[in-house]
Design a protein around this nucleic acid. Structure first.
Lengths: 329, 329
DNA sequence: CCGTTTTTTGTAATCGATTACATGGAATCG
DNA sequence: CGATTCCATGTAATCGATTACAAAAAACGG
């Protein structure tokens, strides 16, 4: 492989001048500029990225932590991040955490070793106290996540408001016995529960603990939930699932049991994934602007790098969330 | 940031010895080893990746070219690639090509600039002659793609056999008027057409050009196809779509028009994506082992790096493809 | 035309690691 | 005990760029 000094030799110039040409610096005569370009062409020269990175102390690489690549909601976010990244000359490093605390921390050493300029979390597993020490090594942004004590920029949706909106909708439709599914008891899922509870409380409706289901994430979990519901003496008439996948599991199993949706059971999703409009009846759900939250996050990231935004103190950007009325409510 | 010479200074040793400790070389006394580890801890030292990459002439980075991150089939492949990569200590760089020839070529300069050790194509847009010059700079692997003249390892599925299998199935079920959708007229899509035509020819069935649809990729395209079918005097009784998304579009629109599936129109997908078992009736489709093809590809990639496999001549690994019978045929 | 400023180019240090080669000391062997 | 081998460590070159500083050449001003 040709190096910069090969080009220098070929042209009879110094590598400094060649470097100036490569980086489009002023104060290089047109003649030499042309000469250098010719030589580069001829030798098939490309600047070595590692050498540049070393010297420039940056890599134009961003680590994106994502729980699972096969989760459509996260790939939508990723897509949003990627579009801005590519536009601004950044590359993305995929870091699939599989929701493991250990992997999440492991990926953070990418920051310490200067392999990446910064990190974007699209979900977060560890306590903030574990993450915080890494903030000194480069920008960290939370995307679609919220931690009360986080000392970094946050781009998020008002989850609580989203579920409040959804629950209100159910109430307005006349449903009074409303079940609720949620994932973990922290973060997003917790916010959703709060919004749900607020709407329920405002309407002075009963909140039966039999109607609350934990650790629901997948379609399979949704099916299980419905099976439990079937066996209750006092069945709910509507269910707010934590996500579209769970919702579709509930729906599928409901149909299998001959339960009419929404007449006998209304179902409300969360996310507005493509499947929401594919299944039948089409799913009423809370729309999360996945791509937009991704692209905003990447913009914030770049602002941090450029010092436009303070990177070690909390700031929150909140994007609107909305209800998409379809056929299951 | 602490560097290796800070650690050397702190311990009173040379940076050579520190490097030996970092890289677990023999011939370092236990005492110094401990000393170095302590100093590293104390100084919060992490080796600088760019410096290492420069010196070692490798990055442990692989560029993965993928048309769209939001296409579930490709993210499944990506997931397979990622799992092996992480196991073997490689990181993945996301390169979303948006099916653009230009972007595809742009990403290849990552190889020239030594930013990545190699490239995996999960789809390919340019002619092989455009790609070939890059093979000298590092391993390139084709994943789920095939180019007759490609001079690199290929991991693929026998698409022609898959569609042959599917078409045979339709024929065995008694369908005689079979429509066919395909994307572009090159590559994968072309192979699928060949298998389809072979099965049709073997059964001596008619191949009506009115029943062949081009450039179908999305759900929307599927809907359009069905609208066209509706308006035909001589309607097909079955349709082999190029993919599950197209199939689900066809299905959805068929139901909207009151067409009974599969009684009045049988539908066969391709891919076996999660949606295939979500929609109703559940979709009969050709199963492509996405994750496996990804993981095999990454293994082949590593074999190339280690010189176990010749990287500049064609070799083909073919994975099995199978029919999943569900309810639409 | 001479002094000053600006443009063009080069020299050499630097980024932070790895490693070939050299060296001194300890262990081994006949 | 002297020759040989092995172990532990250091010195300095190297990977391939960028850039501070210096110097030569050109342009400018009066």
């Amino acid at each position: 492989m040709a190096t910069i000094s090969d080009v220098a030799k070929q042209t009879g110039l110094s590598s400094a001048t060649v470097s100036r040409v490569i980086n489009n610096y002023p104060h290089v005569s047109e003649e030499k500029r042309r000469l250098v370009h010719e030589a580069m062409q001829e030798l098939g020269y490309f600047p070595n990225t590692s050498a540049r990175n070393l010297r420039n102390r940056k890599t134009n690489l961003v680590a994106v932590l994502i729980p699972r690549l096969t989760n459509p909601f996260f790939t939508t976010i990723l897509d949003g991040i990627e579009k801005v990244a590519e536009e601004k000359g950044f590359q993305l490093l995929i870091c699939q955490t599989q929701s493991s605390k250990k992997k999440e921390l492991d990926f953070l050493t990418l920051l310490k070793t200067k392999q990446v300029d910064g990190v974007i979390f699209t979900s977060i597993e560890n306590d903030w106290s574990k993450i915080e020490p890494y903030t000194e090594s480069g920008p960290i942004i939370l995307c679609n996540e919220y931690h009360r004590d986080a000392t970094v920029p946050i781009v998020r949706l008002d989850q609580a408001y989203g579920s409040y909106l959804g629950t209100r909708h159910l109430i307005e439709r006349g449903y009074k016995k409303i079940a609720f599914c949620h994932g973990s008891k922290s973060g997003l899922s917790n916010d959703r529960r709060k919004g749900f509870e607020r709407a329920i409380a405002e309407a002075a409706l009963p909140l039966n603990q039999e109607w609350v289901f934990h650790d629901t994430y997948t379609m399979e979990d949704g099916k299980k939930v419905l099976k439990k519901i079937i066996n209750l003496k006092n069945r709910p008439t509507a269910i707010f699932t934590g996500g579209d996948e769970v919702a579709s599991g509930v729906l599928k199993e409901a149909k299998r049991h001959g339960l009419k949706v929404p007449e006998e059971l209304a179902i409300l999703g969360f996310d507005d994934q493509p499947i929401a409009s594919l299944i039948e009846p089409e799913l009423t759900t809370i729309h999360q602007p996945g791509e937009e939250i991704g692209s905003r996050t990447m913009s914030v990231f770049i602002d941090c790098l450029n010092g436009v935004i303070e990177r070690t103190q909390q700031s929150v950007i909140e994007l609107p969330i909305s209800l998409v009325k379809r056929k299951t409510t």
